[in-house]
């Protein structure tokens, strides 16, 4: 497994760069990662990440956008606005979770 080092912290990631150990994550790390994709994490950006962490802690899988809407109460449109391009992937990466695998 490759490892990434950032600001003196070393953490294990998978081949694509997603964190493999969810406990390595904290919001400070998310802030540092977000800077690489040109996002500054304010409250609206952080809320979905926190939901993803909580939800995946119980289900064991990274929630899909659809689930973030139906269970988390976020609207898909907002998520696309907060994280343009590949919202589910970006959020999973920032939240220290595996790449989402659900189809819908």
């Amino acid at each position: 497994m490759p490892t990434n080092t950032l600001n003196g912290r070393t953490f294990e990631v998978d081949a694509e760069g997603f964190l493999t150990r969810r406990d390595d994550w904290d919001e400070e790390l998310a802030q540092d990662l977000a800077a690489f994709i040109g996002v500054e994490l304010d409250e609206p950006h952080l809320a979905p990440l926190r939901f993803m962490r909580e939800d995946s802690a119980t289900t064991g899988v990274t929630p899909t956008l659809r689930r973030m809407q139906s269970v988390g109460g976020f609207t898909v449109k907002d998520l696309f606005a907060l994280y343009p391009g590949k919202p589910a992937k970006k959020m999973a990466w920032l939240a220290g979770l595996p790449k989402p695998v659900g189809c819908v």
């Binding site: 990434n4 760069g17 802030q31 540092d32 800077a35 590949k86 990466w93």
Partner: peptide
């Protein structure tokens, strides 16, 4: 200010933004 470019050798997904 936060560093906006990943350090050399940093593994991260391709988000296609570039």
């Amino acid at each position: 200010p936060r560093v906006t470019t990943p350090p050399p050798g940093f593994v991260m997904p391709d988000f296609g933004d570039t």
